[in-house]
């Protein structure tokens, strides 16, 4: 079943097309990797899906419902959550507060504060941040801040999770831990689309990979297919 579907999605900045005439789809339960050189339009696509930007023209459907033009907070409450390329944690709030807030406002079942607190505690455990729950978010390491963002996104009880370079800037061990976390999230039945530059991670974790270049989709397929695709190797892997 298709959980997300885009049709002719286009976004221009001035005259420049950041994303052009893109058709894409994501199936329920999949982990889809989004790769491409810098400036290929990956983050723009996330911004279009999550409602920061509105495609013009184009149409985006989530669970067969048209979500084009909805505000980020509405799309969040439909069940799409995301993280950010440059971390956007609430730095002066405690780690717990970050996640609690998301459970309180993002969950479409409108949790009571007690339920939200319980949810936040569970999620802290899930992403492995229980030990630092009272620390200020700004005091965390980058790896932990990225985990916190994932936890905060999960607190909104998403069905689709958009991960924007959650592994960038992390060391080997942290990357491995994050891959583990991604697998754990998928086991919860959450569909994932992830932008990543670390090929090893992408190849390992993803069921399917979409390759973007200059705002267009140039290839799509299983990790094996992508690894051997000539165009992809030319523009991206072989650089």
């Amino acid at each position: 079943m298709r959980i997300l579907e885009g049709e002719g999605v286009t976004k221009r900045f001035g005259g420049l097309a950041a994303v052009e005439q893109m058709d894409f789809h994501v199936d329920q339960g999949e982990v889809v990797g989004l790769i491409g050189p810098n400036g290929a339009g990956k983050t723009t696509l996330f911004n279009l899906i999550s409602g920061v930007l509105v495609p013009k023209p184009g149409r985006i459907e989530f669970k067969s419902e048209n979500i084009t033009g909805l505000k980020p907070n509405q799309i969040c409450r439909k069940g799409v959550a995301r993280t950010f390329q440059s971390v956007k944690v609430f730095s002066n709030m405690p780690v717990f507060g970050n996640i609690y807030l998301a459970a309180l406002f993002g969950n479409r079942n409108n949790l009571t504060s007690a339920e939200a607190a319980q949810e936040a505690t569970d999620l802290l455990e899930f992403v492995g941040l229980s030990a630092v729950r009272s620390s200020s978010a700004q005091d965390l390491t980058l790896a932990n801040q990225k985990r916190l963002e994932v936890g905060r996104a999960l607190a909104t009880k998403p069905e689709l999770l958009l991960l924007d370079e959650v592994m960038a800037g992390l060391n080997e061990t942290e990357v491995a831990q994050t891959m583990e976390l991604v697998n754990k999230i998928r086991e919860e039945g959450i569909t994932i689309v992830m932008i990543e530059h670390i090929m090893r991670a992408i190849m390992n974790v993803c069921d399917r990979i979409i390759v973007l270049h200059h705002g267009k989709k140039i290839a799509e397929g299983s990790p094996e297919e992508i690894a051997t695709n000539e165009t992809v190797v030319q523009v991206y892997l072989g650089e």
Partner: peptide, 22 residues
């Protein structure tokens, strides 16, 4: 909870919107 929401807006408005704060 609105006090928290206001605070999150001050911290990072777009992140606040993405976790469902109107």
């Amino acid at each position: 909870k609105y006090g928290l929401a206001l605070q999150s807006i001050g911290e990072d408005e777009s992140a606040a919107a993405h976790i469902g704060v109107n």
